[in-house]
């Protein structure tokens, strides 16, 4: 039950809500209940890759997550994408099944916030829709500012549909919202949540810091960095090259190659899986090695850490 980490979902409906914006309603393929999720959570869909390469894994925020009614996502068709959003927009049909991870939340509401200030840019609206539903039910103080291009402002206004007395504003155009004035006007104890283009989220964080907001009061959407670029691990003593895929850990790749290597927490904390490194440029993501140990370049924790160089040579 609880360690079933992959969901098989059926597309119940996939209506276009505006040009380039498609709402996906997903239910469990076998009709069972789906795991609930907190507002701000996302799931990662496995989508076929256009070139027949390894499947794409795209993360989307849950706009709504109800164990019985199912999950709602809103997906924008992006031209710069690797093809995931094209697949959803052009090929996915009601009745199709799709694989997804269970929900994961790296963008949670803060339980002690006196007020929640939500600022979204473009498709960054998706977690805000989940936040607004939750904050309304909890009768919590909040305010939402949606920044949209002029031609999409109407679409977002319709999606947000403010209740009477709520401060929900759609700003048409990137410069239509005075971030500094907005933050400066907030009462003490406010937490700000941002989702949108990286530059927008960086700017809000910088303005908040200038105004003296504690960093712990500034939140931004995060899907996490579980995977990364693929690379090759050369196991010098075993004399084999192991291909580490983008969505696979170095440890998993070594195990898949039939090499028995000890591990325990598999989260970069315990130190059990430490391996000797002889060449390459490691990207350390663990909490075990000290700065000095990292600088010496002699070890790597393969359960979480990866490589910046195309090849990493391990002395095993």
């Amino acid at each position: 039950m609880m360690d079933d980490r992959t969901l098989s979902l059926r597309v119940a409906a996939a209506p276009l809500v505006a040009t380039g914006l498609r709402r996906l309603h997903l239910v469990a393929a076998d009709g069972s209940r789906l795991p609930p999720a907190a507002p701000g959570a996302h799931i990662t869909l496995t989508l076929p890759s256009p070139a027949g390469a390894r499947p794409l894994r795209n993360s989307y925020t849950l706009v709504e997550a109800d164990p019985e009614r199912g999950y709602q996502l809103i997906v924008r068709r992006t031209d710069r994408s690797r093809g995931g959003s094209h697949h959803i927009h052009d090929r996915l049909q009601p009745g199709d099944t799709i694989e997804a991870t269970v929900p994961h939340n790296l963008f949670a509401l803060h339980s002690q916030a006196r007020k929640h200030l939500l600022i979204a840019g473009g498709i960054g609206i998706t977690p805000m829709l989940a936040f607004v539903a939750h904050l309304r039910e909890a009768r919590a103080a909040f305010e939402l500012h949606q920044i949209a291009s002029a031609d999409e402002a109407g679409v977002f206004a319709a999606l947000l549909a403010p209740h009477p007395g709520e401060r929900i504003q759609v700003h048409a155009g990137r410069d239509a919202c005075d971030i500094a004035a907005l933050l400066a006007a907030q009462p003490l104890g406010t937490h700000v949540y941002t989702c949108g283009p990286g530059a927008m989220m960086d700017r809000i964080a910088a303005v908040a810091a200038e105004l003296g907001w504690p960093a712990s009061h500034v939140h931004r959407e995060d899907f996490g960095a579980a995977g990364g670029e693929p690379f090759t691990a050369r196991l010098a003593r075993s004399g084999i090259d192991v291909a580490v895929a983008g969505d696979q850990t170095l440890l998993e790749a070594i195990e898949a190659a039939g090499i028995d290597t000890p591990s325990l927490c598999r989260g970069g904390a315990c130190g059990v899986c430490i391996l000797p490194l002889s060449e390459g440029d490691p990207e350390h993501r663990d909490h075990f090695l000290s700065e000095a140990e990292r600088a010496s370049g002699c070890h790597i924790m393969p359960c979480v850490s990866r490589s910046r160089s195309a090849t990493l040579v391990l002395d095993i």
Binding site: D4, R5, P35, V102, G268, A269
Partner: peptide
């Protein structure tokens, strides 16, 4: 650090 990263479905 480890506990704060414990994920739903991965106890």
């Amino acid at each position: 650090q480890y506990l704060m990263r414990v994920r739903y479905g991965h106890p």
